Simulated assay, not measured.
Amino acid sequence: MKSLLACCKVYISESRNISSLESIERAVKIFPEVVIVNKFTDDAYNRVGYTLVSQLPMEEASTGSNPLKNAVFDMVKEALRTIDLQVQRGSHPRLGVVDHICFHPLSLASLNQVASVAKSVAINIGQNLEVPTYLYGAAHEEGRTLDSLRRELGYFRPNSQGKEWAGSLELEAQTVKPDVGPSKASKSTGVVVIGATKWVDNYNIPIQSTDLGPVKRISRLVSGRGGGLDSVQAMALAHGEKSTEVACNLLDPVKVNADQVQRRVEELAAREGLTAGKGYFTDFPQVEIIERYVEGVKEGA
């Protein structure tokens, strides 16, 4: 589709509160130009990811007429109204009720254009909803990476006994100053992280073990940071009562794809005496996302 298309992925730290999710989804339906092309729910993680697509206006992408910007803001507003981080728990790390928002260019849109939208959304959330908001990628003036920001904020350390994250985080003790919004986070909302990058594939591989130790070793050795596959980020997470996952971000899927990651994890798991199951994507590929957007626009016409 030869137009300026932007994709936005919104990750909400809740999957079990159906009325809350319905309220969040209704916020998008007000904007017929915006299509939810995917909803990925994981009850073990107590987390849901929405993938939204919309055309960008031909004028400056950060103007008030941008339906994608307005839809994302309204989703965040509803999530903060209906979800309390203090009572939320799950085996996936999170920094807030709305844990992560990322924008990606599609079709003819540029990274700079979606970065402009990301920064505009961040300003609205930080100032109007009074939530500490952090930027990364092309939306951040120094191009800070998502994993480095999360590391600074203590994202990867469980805050409760066992393998879960439960209740609010003590983010007020952090020294990382938000890019927008108040310096202190509310215990009920946490913070929001917003960025803009080129396309990222999310690929999770189940390991038939409940022992996080060896799976952490596998995750470290498969990741670029641990000397493994370049452009791959990975972390080990408990997933249900009988398995663990190597959850991966493929930052450059053309350079290092899911098949390569799958083979490497299988090799590393075998060294640990473990079995790696077949991995799965949490979203559709770019081409199919555009196709689903086109179909969604036709259905709504």
Rank of each mutant, 00 (worst) to 15 (best):
L111N: 06
N46W: 07
R217N: 10
W199R: 08
V97Q: 02
S20Y: 05
I125N: 07
L251F: 10
A173F: 12
G96Q: 04
S20Q: 03
S168W: 03
Q86C: 08
V192H: 01
R292D: 02
G64V: 15
L4A: 01
E295K: 14
S3R: 15
Q88N: 11
A61Q: 10
D252L: 13
M75G: 04
A276P: 02
E164L: 13
S243Q: 15
V121T: 09
R94Y: 06
G277Q: 03
E241S: 09
P285E: 06
M1P: 08
G300F: 10
L171H: 04
P93G: 03
C248K: 08
V87M: 07
N70D: 03
A44H: 11
Q88G: 00
A118Q: 03
G90E: 10
I83A: 02
P253W: 08
H140K: 09
T197C: 07
M58A: 15
V48A: 09
A234Q: 08
N204C: 04
Y203Q: 01
R292M: 11
L149M: 07
E14A: 01
S219Y: 05
A258E: 12
I125R: 06
E130A: 02
V265F: 07
L149P: 00
T244Q: 07
A6R: 08
R292Q: 09
K242E: 14
A236R: 14
S148E: 14
K77S: 05
L171A: 05
Q260C: 04
D259I: 04
G240C: 09
E33T: 08
S62Y: 15
